[in-house]
């Protein structure tokens, strides 16, 4: 598999010559590879949830309108991801919208196929079960499909990179990371169980640990993609601007997820706070990791 430089140069010339003649065919083929990669990404991101029983059940019995809200909330997030991660600086908003729809289609097709293979969906199931289960699974799958489409392709390593989005993009990535990891954990009953076992002191400790880890992940422990603090910004400034705000974002998303899944229904306010903090932990880690990876 070792290619010499001349060999590569040669093959590049051949490729260019061929592709001028069959321009559109070549573009189709390149895109088909991209789609295959997106299927892989969707699988990687949705597999834990495809194999979680609670997710199948939630897809059927969770409140329909809250599920709609979740889907409606997911879509602009996908568009934003596609926009900021597009590896061409020329990616327009329309391209991003199209990319997001493609990601939804790929995730839906993939999750439906896997659920059929698992026997969790079949001809004996009603439309409610089909649509509920597939739409819920599509959320994580489409995030995976989108990342694989734009982020993990070879083009992403060519130095062209993503557009520089500024602070807003950072918050955006944090929201996507928080949504992804909290979707993974929120359906499990352990969230409520852990919240129930924790004393207020445990809860407080978890808040501090979440904040500390979020900050350490991004600034301190030398992960690839680590952020450097700009010289004119103080530690406290950076901490408040990104880590604290990011945590607030993660907490808000985890509360939204819990409410959508009906975790708050009939629950006392104190317990609601505990549940939110518990789910806020993976959401915070997801948010911090997204800043590194994306």
């Amino acid at each position: 598999m070792v290619h010499t430089a001349t060999e590569l140069k040669g093959s590049m010339h051949v490729r260019s010559a061929v592709s001028t003649r069959t321009h559109s065919w070549d573009a189709e083929r390149a895109y088909a590879v991209c789609v295959a990669r997106a299927f892989g990404g969707a699988l990687l991101f949705s597999l834990p949830m495809l194999m979680t029983m609670e997710m199948w059940e939630l897809g059927v019995h969770m409140d329909r309108l809250r599920l709609v809200l979740l889907l409606v909330f997911m879509f602009p997030l996908l568009v934003g991801l596609a926009f900021y991660l597009g590896f061409e600086s020329s990616t327009t908003l329309l391209d991003a919208v199209l990319d997001a729809f493609v990601a939804v289609a790929i995730a839906a097709l993939l999750t439906a196929t896997i659920l059929i293979v698992f026997g969790a969906l079949g001809p004996e199931h009603t439309a409610r079960e089909w649509i509920g289960r597939v739409s819920l699974q599509t959320i994580a799958g489409s995030i995976g499909a989108l990342l694989a489409q734009s982020q993990f392709g070879r083009a992403a390593y060519e130095g062209e990179g993503r557009r520089q989005g500024g602070d807003f993009a950072e918050y955006f990535f944090m929201a996507a990371g928080a949504l992804f990891l909290s979707t993974n954990v929120a359906p499990t009953e352990e969230v409520e169980l852990i919240a129930h076992m924790m004393t207020p002191w445990n809860g407080l400790a978890l808040v501090f640990i979440s904040l500390l880890l979020m900050h350490a992940f991004v600034y301190a422990v030398d992960f690839k993609g680590q952020h450097e603090r700009a010289e004119h910004v103080t530690f406290v400034g950076e901490f408040v601007r990104f880590t604290v705000l990011g945590y607030v974002l993660a907490i808000a998303i985890s509360a939204f997820m819990c409410w959508c899944f009906g975790r708050f229904d009939g629950v006392a306010p104190g317990e609601i706070l505990n549940i939110t903090i518990v789910l806020g932990f993976p959401a915070a880690i997801g948010a911090a990791a997204a800043r590194l990876v994306l």
Binding site: M12, R15, S24, A27, L98, A155
Partner: peptide, 16 residues
Amino acid sequence: AQAKRPAARRAQASTP
């Protein structure tokens, strides 16, 4: 990756 670059670019330029 360099060799692949032109193809990837065109895939973006005209929507397949």
